[in-house]
Design a protein around this nucleic acid. Sequence first.
DNA 1: TAGATTGTTAATCGATTAACAATC
DNA 2: TAGATTGTTAATCGATTAACAATC
Lengths: 207, 207
Amino acid sequence: MAGAIPRATVARLPLYLQCLEGMHVGQRIVSSEQLGRMAGVNSAKVRKDLSHLGPHGTRGVGYDAEELRRLISQKLGRTGPSGVAIVGAGNLGQALAGYDGFDERGFRVAAIFDTDTTKIGESLNGILVEHIDEMADVVKDRNVSIGIITTPPEAAQEAADRLAAAGVRSILNFAPAVLRLPPGVEVRRVDLATELQILGYYQHVSS
Amino acid sequence: MAGAIPRATVARLPLYLQCLEGMHVGQRIVSSEQLGRMAGVNSAKVRKDLSHLGPHGTRGVGYDAEELRRLISQKLGRTGPSGVAIVGAGNLGQALAGYDGFDERGFRVAAIFDTDTTKIGESLNGILVEHIDEMADVVKDRNVSIGIITTPPEAAQEAADRLAAAGVRSILNFAPAVLRLPPGVEVRRVDLATELQILGYYQHVSS
DNA sequence: TAGATTGTTAATCGATTAACAATC
DNA sequence: TAGATTGTTAATCGATTAACAATC
């Protein structure tokens, strides 16, 4: 690990990347002020964040947009496309299998697993639903490095255990469950109903 | 606004609520230690968080699980079911329309909007896809208080503007776009590809 | 040189957590 | 009373941001 980047900064890097990619093609140079405006972030914060990538701006001028993209992509470990496996072929799993945003940012859905035998063999967006027992082989053969859990909460821990056992070290968990995993496996949780509940609080206090 | 609760605490309240609801029915009393274990959170943090709801535990004993649920629900403004409108009837919008987790936590999907005339009139999970021009009326008639944006990024700002104009004060944005909204409208952003990119960083540094 | 913008410092703010007095 | 657990304090840590010297 060379020069750990603060978690808050890591979480903003993809946003900067997105802004840079949405930029007018002719614009070669971008300032922290401009990038901040695009990302909705204070310009001092932008400069501090970018300083973690090493000094690479030009004082009095700004940052080379192309170089910045390259540096951020590199830090995020995005060199080639990453293989993603989805566990849970329900509504959400199906939607994620067809989500364009993944392809666009270099993620390739390589497999979908379920335990429901009536679903196995079905094709979702050209990807076959396979039994969760096939996971170990599939992960190895198709070079899967990220798992996405979209099972019901009761099945989430087992899905996580199996992913970890198959060698997956990064898990995105959509199931409303708290997962226990060995150190070295990074988990991020996205709880859709929780997001709405949080919004509920602010609606409530501001009225 | 009575006694503002720190943002970090607000974000954890739904998690505590979830843990309480998943608890064994017979268990009436819960300690900060237990709740912390369930939620994956330090027990001191649990006590600090709960102290924002007013003192209501019993020293030497713990918290009354039922009272705790009631207090948290109240703080999150969850009294009756909240109406939700989804803008964007693509893959993700469809999946969210059928997402069981919303019902379970008191959110009712009351409408789905799109601009694509071929989609309008279609029924997703018993909910008709309507034209975005109907939004103002629908929001009023069906008591919608939360908007969910699942449009392509180019259409997200307009969707947000229309929701705000219709009187919606809470927006959950799944489109990879930075939204500008007037003060008083709370926005939360969920960017699915960004979550994967963040995971990429930690995969990268730990290897 | 004059103007502009970076990279960094330092002040401030907010969140975390160990420790413990209060108290059931 | 003895044991347990809350509620709060205070130390610490990490993130934000204004300010400005460095420098193109």
